[in-house]
Amino acid sequence: MRVTMIHALAESIPPVRLAFGEVFPEAEVVNLLDEGLLIDFDGQLTPHLRRRMSNVIGYCQDNKADAIGLACSVYAPVVDSAKHLVDVPLVSSYGPVMAEAVSAGTRIGLIASVQATMADSEFYLKLAAEEAGVEIEPVLCLAEDLITVLRAEGQVGLERRLEQEVLGMAKDVDMVVLTQFSFAAALAHLEKVSPVPVLSAPHSSARALKQLLA
């Protein structure tokens, strides 16, 4: 089974490889990178950018994708329209992880390092709760230094900082969602130290696509 993942940042490719290697190793993962998708994004998802992403999604199916996933969160709204243009499973970066989150508890912690990502994450979490017919209480944690720590100290530093944030909010939540793909490398460590479940977006995407292709 070929799963094609669409990226706007090269940094999101290693987390996808990690997640699929752990969750869905039998999949043939093809990572398609178009950095222009982010370079040309100026805070607004214009009709031109929507068509462009839709064309990329169509290209993936035309080139033997059995399923398609988006790793670029700002293009998540395109999935609603593009899913009618292809006849293979298509998931956004938020859909699978938020669906898992709302099925596991009501008090859901969200960790992000960028305010825009936090706002989008909260929106899609509430949307998933509405679709599931459940009530949830988002608990937000904006830690703006996380990417700086990752670049300066590597995975060990990221694990240390995320552990601090997860433990700090654990008493107030039923589970924690790592909203950014780049945090996925810390999941194994956090699962060992966190008293509540922790979800990462690429791992949830891998689980969802594995189930859809079963």
Rank of each mutant, 00 (worst) to 15 (best):
T179H: 06
V29G: 06
I136E: 08
V29Q: 08
A67W: 02
L32R: 13
T106W: 05
A65E: 03
D120A: 15
Q115P: 08
R107K: 07
V79R: 11
A27K: 09
E137F: 11
S205I: 13
M118I: 09
D34M: 03
A19K: 02
P14I: 03
S204D: 03
A214K: 14
F123Q: 15
Q61G: 03
R52I: 04
L127W: 11
M169D: 01
V176A: 05
A143S: 13
M98C: 07
V91E: 05
R2H: 12
L142N: 08
G168W: 10
L142P: 09
I57T: 03
D34N: 10
S194T: 06
R151Q: 09
Q61F: 07
A184M: 00
S182L: 00
G21A: 06
E11Q: 15
V177F: 10
G69P: 01
S194Y: 10
L187E: 02
M118F: 11
A27G: 10
R51D: 14
I13K: 09
H203F: 09
S205R: 10
A8S: 12
L178P: 03
A104W: 02
A99Y: 04
V74I: 13
E153D: 11
R207E: 00
V198K: 06
P202D: 00
L162H: 07
R151F: 03
Y75L: 09
A186Y: 04
L212E: 13
L32S: 04
R161F: 03
E137I: 11
R151W: 02
G109S: 05
G168H: 08
S204Q: 06
S73V: 04
V74P: 05
P89W: 04
L146R: 07
F181Y: 15
Y94N: 11
D145F: 10
R51K: 12
V177P: 07
A71G: 09
F123W: 14
R207H: 02
L150P: 03
V149T: 12
M118C: 11
